[in-house]
Design a protein around this nucleic acid. Structure first.
Length: 397
DNA sequence: GCAGAAGAGGAAAGAGAGTC
DNA sequence: GACTCTCTTTCCTCTTCTGC
């Protein structure tokens, strides 16, 4: 495979045994932050693309009423954008936490409903804290009591208002500003207890009291400020959320999906279980439920097989002519920069992977000046980090 | 204009590997 | 063992955007 750069630097071509594939470099959507619906910004999540990305492909490849899926649903960016655009959403993720975060966004309630519900929940109730996990490095004892009361309440109360409150609470569990429940911590990932203790020691701070009810309401107002609740609620019963392996999308019917917009894990760059342990604890998701199920492929051949298996099942669920827009990045692997779009393109031409079921029509590379993407990918960005979104557009044959 | 919120982020110290 | 280079981990900073 070789890249032939054109004079204007806007395209190159990747030669494959099945013909050359154009790769288009441009800023297809804005690099600015938070330009889309406020519900998209209700949760920090370690690995997520901007909502502009699914919006671009949903507008390009589907019409109202079509079905749009994401087998690596994460915080539900594709599903929410599909629902906001009048499409039906299918969202899957192996981590049960994903559904806890994504479902409420597609089934929103009003701020008034949230306020009324919170009034009814006694968060000040005395509880036996001796049986609870030690989270003193994150929370003031009074804050922690309120969190435990909310956690206990949510075990048995699961209507859409409760689930929306849970989703908002999940976004407030740790962070570095006063709107969060915790002492100064990392907003994006759950750090281990010993690291939080070190932060507290360095800053010479102890967790101060953070009343949680007002913080939930404030964040809920912010999350719901963009409106469009009637658009979301119009199709709310049609959307489907599944929790399982992306290689076997149980619950997704054959020949039912018009478009898939997704981003798989990049090899083993992110430890999704470790990085969400506080959220999983709050939801009562046991480590055994996720440990070993989230695929972390340390080498390229395992990752390639994993992607092939995922595409195989996507072939089953897509309608003929349906499209997969798969976003990947560049990672450092064995000392070299690896453009994963080229790896996936190679797979679609590989006899050993039996991947002639898809034809790569083009590859979009979103380039932008302002990128503050993950250092965890160990790639030189403008200086460090992942600098581009690389999206393969694959047609189901 | 200012304060708060958010980010597939960033700098630097520490650990490990390679070479002599 | 000493030195150098590279990779990994730790622990927050800085830039941008939004709302008042």
């Amino acid at each position: 495979m070789s890249a032939l750069t054109l004079a204007n630097n806007e395209y190159d071509y990747l030669d494959t045994p099945l013909g050359s594939v154009p790769r288009i470099f441009d800023e297809f959507w804005t690099a600015k932050q938070r330009q889309m619906h406020s519900l998209h910004y209700s949760n920090s999540y370690r690995a997520s693309f901007k909502p502009e990305l699914p919006d671009f492909f949903i507008s390009k490849f589907t019409k109202k009423g079509d079905v749009v899926g994401d087998p690596f649903g994460g915080r539900g960016t594709t599903a929410l954008q599909a629902a906001l655009s009048g499409r039906v959403a299918l969202s899957n993720d192996v981590n049960p936490l994903s559904e806890r975060i994504a479902y409420p966004k597609l089934h929103p309630v009003t701020v008034e409903e949230i306020e009324k519900r919170l009034e009814k929940i006694n968060l000040k109730k005395d509880v036996d804290m001796s049986v609870e996990e030690d989270m003193s490095m994150f929370y003031h004892p009074e804050t922690y009591k309120e969190i435990i009361n909310l956690k206990n309440y949510l075990k048995t109360h699961r209507d859409d208002v409760d689930r929306f409150i849970e989703m908002i609470a999940l976004s407030r569990l740790h962070g570095h500003s006063t709107g969060f429940f915790s002492a100064y911590s990392f907003p994006q990932i759950s750090i281990p207890k010993y690291r939080q203790q070190k932060i507290n020691e360095t800053r010479q701070e102890m967790p101060d009291y953070r009343e949680i009810k007002s913080r939930i309401i404030k964040k809920a107002k912010d999350t719901l400020k963009s409106g469009q609740l009637e658009t979301l609620n119009a199709n709310s019963k049609k959307h489907i959320f599944t929790t399982g392996d992306a290689r076997n999308l149980t619950g997704w019917e054959d020949n039912s999906v018009n478009l898939v917009v997704t981003s798989p894990p990049f090899l083993n760059q992110v430890d999704y279980v470790q990085d969400t342990w506080i959220e999983n604890w709050f939801c009562g998701i046991a480590r055994e439920e996720v440990d070993g199920k989230i695929v972390q492929t340390p080498n390229l051949s395992e990752w390639s097989q994993f992607i092939s298996d995922v595409l195989s099942d996507l072939h089953r669920v897509l309608v003929p002519g349906g499209i997969v827009a798969m976003e990947v990045g560049e990672v450092k692997y064995q000392g070299k920069i690896l453009n994963l779009d080229e790896i996936v393109l190679g797979l679609t031409c590989s006899r050993s992977h039996n991947m002639h079921q898809f034809k790569v029509n083009e590859i979009y590379v979103q380039s932008q000046q302002f990128t503050k993407l993950a250092n965890c990918f160990n790639v030189s960005n403008n200086k460090k980090g992942t600098n581009t979104n690389r999206i393969l557009v694959m047609e189901r044959m």
